[in-house]
Structures are given as structure tokens and as C-alpha cells.
Amino acid sequence: MPGGGPEMDDYMETLKDEEDALWENVECNRHMLSRYINPAKLTPYLRQCKVIDEQDEDEVLNAPMLPSKINRAGRLLDILHTKGQRGYVVFLESLEFYYPELYKLVTGKEPTRRFSTIVVEEGHEGLTHFLMNEVIKLQQQMKAKDLQRCELLARLRQLEDEKKQMTLTRVELLTFQERYYKMKEERDSYNDELVKVKDDNYNLAMRYAQLSEEKNMAVMRSRDLQLEIDQLKHRLNKMEEECKLERNQSLKLKNDIENRPKKEQVLELERENEMLKTKNQELQSIIQAGKRSLPDSDKAILDILEHDRKEALEDRQELVNRIYNLQEEARQAEELRDKYLEEKEDLELKCSTLGKDCEMYKHRMNTVMLQLEEVERERDQAFHSRDEAQTQYSQCLIEKDKYRKQIRELEEKNDEMRIEMVRREACIVNLESKLRRLSKDSNNLDQSLPRNLPVTIISQDFGDASPRTNGQEADDSSTSEESPEDSKYFLPYHPPQRRMNLKGIQLQRAKS
């Protein structure tokens, strides 16, 4: 015994090295194993092979420090690593049964499904019991997946119906949107047309105001020219009257000059006056001389005659003075006559000038009245044309509004008919989907599995289990394997941990 101590140590070291070499393959693929292994699927088989106990299973599945599946799978690998070579062998058998691809990844061999460990530990009855539990578990999982698949199909059909409904609603909204954009385009076109009409109206108003201003300026210029013409006519008439007055005065002077006595007659009258003065002096001298030589009687007679002569001279002087006064009065009367005649001529000139001015103003008033009548006639014609244009424009607008209203009513009726057609199509689609759903539900009910399987069917299934373990590994792997896509769409199922009653199965096998 003492001599065998070193050999035992060498043997233990060799086993430990082999164990480390075995687990080295697992550690190399630890990331892939932790990512894809579900500990809840492996722990029943590991407990059946007595590699882990209930406490280890509870620690792996329910520990609060292991929230994710990767953490739980890593903890399970750590626990199996502590179990040595047996933990490695049982772990590979569980991978061979549940995850053939991972088994091939770790060992590089094809899975054979021999279950040597569980046969050694529990015997064939334990293997049968384990396989029966796994089959029931798989059936329950398949039923749950079928239910989930039916629910998802129903949800899918519902979503398809909602999608069709949303599509129809979208078509309806597109119809309304198209109608909205069309009405918006019509409104924009009408606004552009309105702005264009306003611009045209403004341009016409500006043109009309400009023409009116030009016409008023032309009328004012015409009036100024007419006033200048009238003033020139007035000056012409005044000059004609002055010329006529000057002509009359010149004719009067000419007549006075023609009626003036001649120079010879004046000289002859002056000679006669001198001769008479000479004779008068001679007679006076004779009379003076006679007075001195005459007697007293003759002197008395001469005195009487002288007195008579003096009286006659006085009378004559009075007559001469009277004649002079009369001549002066006649001259003054002639001057007054000439003055009055001049005033008369001036008044006649003024009267004729005023008459011509009156005629001029009368003509001017007639011209202004004619212009006013023409302006009123043009204004009435413009008003009439404007009223006709406004009436025609309003009539066109009324007809346009009428046609637009008819078009809008027809478009609304068309839209309502399209919407009604879309709604009826939606109703038809809904009815078809309901009919299809009812038909599929009836087919699913016919094809669904019963909840409680008979014992004979279970025994028959387990009677055929042994050949399947040898020759149909691919079928078992397809039913027991969970793909990543299934984990996305289906909830994980945790079967209840219970042991099955095998009395009925044993009785059935005894009868057979």
C-alpha cells in the first residue's frame, strides 16, 4: 500500500489531465453553448442521470443573480465542470439528445442517441419513463405552439383585415386629398384670375382717368384759346370803332377846312374895312368942321342928330352885343352839340362793343353748352356701355358659378359613389376574411389534438420509441430542437415537474 501511493497520485493526475482536456473543448465553445442552450431543457435529463440535484437545479433556474438565459447556462456549465468526467459525459449526452448541432460542434462527431448513462443509472424502465415524459412534454409544447400558431394566424388575419381596411381608408383619404388639391388648384386659379381682372380693371381705370385728364386739359386749352380769340375780336371791334371815330373827325375837319373863306376874300374885306374906317374919319372931320361953321339952329339939329346917332349907336351896340352873345351862345351850343355828338359816338361805340361782347359771350355760352351736351352725351354713352359690360360680366359670372356648381355637385356625387364603392369593397373584403377565418377555424378544430390522450396510444408510441432511437435521429431532433426563430415568436414553456403513473402502461404491456 505505501508503495502504491505514487502510482495512485500519477493516476489521479492523469485523470485530472484527461478531464481538463475534455472540458477544454467545452470551454472553447462556451460562448456558443451559453448563447443557445436552454438550461430548463437540460436539467431534467441531468437530474435523471443524478449529475445534479434539486438544489443545483433551483440555483440554475431560479437564482435572482442569474437574470438572463446566458448567465444560467454559464452557471450550469460551471456546476457540471465540478462534476468531473461524469458531468462531461452526461452533458454531451444531453447535447446529443437536445442540441445535435452543438454536440457536433463540441465533439466533431455525429449524434447517435445511445443514452448509456441513464440506462446504467435507471435501467430501461427509467429510460422509458424519461422518454415518455419527454414525449408528453413535446406534445404539450407542440399543442402550445399550435395554439400560439393559431392565435398568430388569427392575429395575422386580423392584421391583414386591418391592413385592407387601412388601405381602403388610405384610398378614401387619397380621394379626399386629391379632391382637396383640386379644389385648392381651382381656388388658386380663381385667385389668379381675380387678381388679373383687378389689374385689368385698375389699368382701365388709370387709362380712363388719364384720358379724362387729357380731355379736361384739352377742353381747358380750347376754352383759353376761345377766350383769347374773343379778346382779340373785342380788341378788333374796339379798334374798328376808334378808326371809324377818327375817320368821322377827319371828315369834319376836312369839311371845315373846305368851308373856310379864301385869302383873297379876307384881304378884300380888310380893304373894305380900311376904306370904311377912312371914310368914317373923313366924315367925322367934316362934321367937326361943320359944327364950327354952322348956326345955332343947325347946331341944335346936329345935337339932336348926334344924340339920335348916339342912341342909334347905343342901340346898335346893344344889338351887336346881343348878336355877339347870341353868337357866343350859338358857339357854345355848337360846342355842346359837338361834345354831345362825340359822347353819342362814344356811347354808340361802347354800345356796339357791348353788343359784340354780348354776342361773343352768347356764342361762347352756346359753345360751352354744346360742349357740355357733348360731354353729357359721352358720359351717358359711357355709363350705358359700362352698365352693359357689367350686366354681361355679371351674367357670365352667374353662368360660370352655375356651371361650377354643377361640376362641383357632379364631382361630389362621383366622390360619394367612389367612397360608397370603396366601403362596399371593404365590406366584401371583411365578409370574405370572416368566411375564410371561419373555414380555417373549423379546419383547425378538426385537426387539433385532444387534450387527454388514451393510455393505449401512449403505450403504442413508446413501443415504437426504441427503433426510432436507432434510425431516425433527424426526426427526433426536428421535433425536440428549438430554433432561434421559434424563440422569437413563441413563449418558452415550462412543464410541471411531476412523475407519471406507469401502472397503466405496465398492465397494457403485460396484456400485449
Score class of each variant (00 low, 15 high):
A21M: 13
H31F: 04
S94G: 12
L15E: 08
Y98K: 12
L15P: 09
L131K: 15
N38A: 07
I52L: 12
M8L: 14
L131G: 01
Q85E: 14
V60S: 13
E93T: 14
Y11N: 08
E19L: 13
D53C: 09
E125W: 14
D20M: 06
V135T: 07
L66C: 04
P6F: 12
E19Y: 13
R114H: 15
G123K: 15
K16F: 07
W23C: 06
E122Y: 04
N71M: 07
V60A: 01
L127Q: 08
L15M: 10
A21H: 03
P39H: 02
L61C: 14
Y45S: 08
N38S: 06
S94D: 00
N29A: 03
K104S: 00
H81M: 05
H129T: 14
G4K: 10
L105P: 00
I70Q: 05
P67F: 05
K16H: 15
E121Q: 08
T117E: 15
D53G: 09
R72I: 05
P111E: 15
Y103T: 00
K109P: 02
F130L: 13
G123V: 15
N29C: 01
D10A: 11
R75E: 04
T128P: 12
G126F: 14
G5Y: 13
E134D: 10
D78C: 05
K16P: 07
Y36D: 02
R114T: 10
M132E: 06
D53L: 07
V135L: 06
A40L: 04
Y98T: 15
E101G: 00
E24K: 06
V90T: 10
L76F: 01
T128N: 04
A40G: 09
F115Y: 15
Y45D: 06
A144L: 08
D56C: 02
N62C: 03
G126M: 15
K137C: 01
T112G: 14
L22P: 08
M8K: 13
E122A: 05
H31Q: 07
P111A: 15
M132K: 09
I70V: 14
Q140V: 10
K137F: 06
C28E: 11
V135W: 09
G123F: 15
L80T: 03
E59T: 05
N62T: 14
M12Y: 10
Y88H: 05
N25Y: 01
E7M: 10
L61H: 01
K145I: 10
M65Q: 00
H81G: 03
I79G: 03
L42Y: 01
A73T: 09
P6W: 13
I136C: 02
G84S: 04
Y36S: 08
K83W: 04
Y36Q: 13
I52M: 10
N29G: 00
H31L: 09
T107I: 03
K83P: 02
E125H: 15
L61R: 02
L80V: 06
E24F: 07
G108A: 09
Q139Y: 10
K41T: 11
S116I: 10
S116L: 13
A73I: 03
N71Q: 09
E54R: 12
E93F: 00
A63R: 06
T128R: 05
I52P: 12
R30Y: 04
K41Q: 05
N62K: 05
T112P: 10
L131V: 09
G87C: 09
E122K: 09
M8G: 13
I52T: 09
D10W: 08
S34N: 01
N29L: 00
Q55K: 08
E13V: 09
K41N: 11
E122G: 11
Y11R: 13
R86S: 13
L80F: 01
S94C: 15
V60H: 01
M32Q: 08
Q140I: 13
D53R: 07
K143E: 11
E96M: 09
H31R: 05
Y45R: 06
Q85L: 07
F130T: 15
A40R: 01
P111Q: 08
P39Y: 08
R75W: 05
G4Q: 10
E59N: 07
L138H: 06
S68Y: 11
E19S: 08
T107A: 04
Q55G: 09
K69I: 05
P64K: 03
E27M: 04
P111S: 15
K50S: 11
C49S: 15
F115I: 15
H129N: 02
K104A: 08
R47D: 04
E121D: 14
H81Q: 11
H129F: 11
K16D: 10
P64F: 14
I52S: 08
V60E: 05
I79D: 04
P111V: 07
K137M: 08
E13M: 05
L33P: 02
T14E: 07
K41Y: 03
D53E: 08
V51W: 09
R114M: 01
D78I: 03
L76N: 01
A73L: 02
E27K: 01
N62D: 06
E57S: 04
F115C: 03
L33A: 03
I37K: 02
M65L: 10
L127Y: 13
D146K: 11
G5K: 14
T14Q: 06
L76D: 01
T117G: 08
D17P: 11
D146W: 06
R35V: 06
V106A: 07
T112K: 15
E13D: 12
G5E: 10
P6H: 07
I79S: 04
E18P: 05
K145C: 04
R72F: 02
K143N: 12
S94T: 02
M142R: 09
E13H: 12
N38G: 00
R113A: 04
T128M: 15
N25C: 09
D17A: 13
D10Q: 10
Y88S: 09
R47W: 05
E24I: 09
Y98I: 13
T128I: 15
G74S: 03
N133H: 02
Y36G: 06
R47E: 07
T14S: 11
H81Y: 09
C28P: 01
Q141P: 08
L42T: 07
I37P: 01
L138E: 01
G126T: 15
T112Q: 07
I136V: 05
T82G: 10
H31C: 14
V26T: 00
K145H: 09
L77Q: 02
D17L: 08
L138N: 10
I79Q: 12
Q140C: 10
T14K: 14
T82S: 07
L105E: 09
I118P: 15
E13I: 11
P100S: 00
Q55R: 09
K145N: 13
K143Q: 12
R35A: 05
E24W: 03
E13G: 12
P44D: 02
F130N: 13
L92F: 05
T117S: 15
K69A: 04
M142T: 13
L95Y: 02
T82N: 05
E125P: 13
P67D: 03
T43L: 09
Y11G: 08
T14R: 10
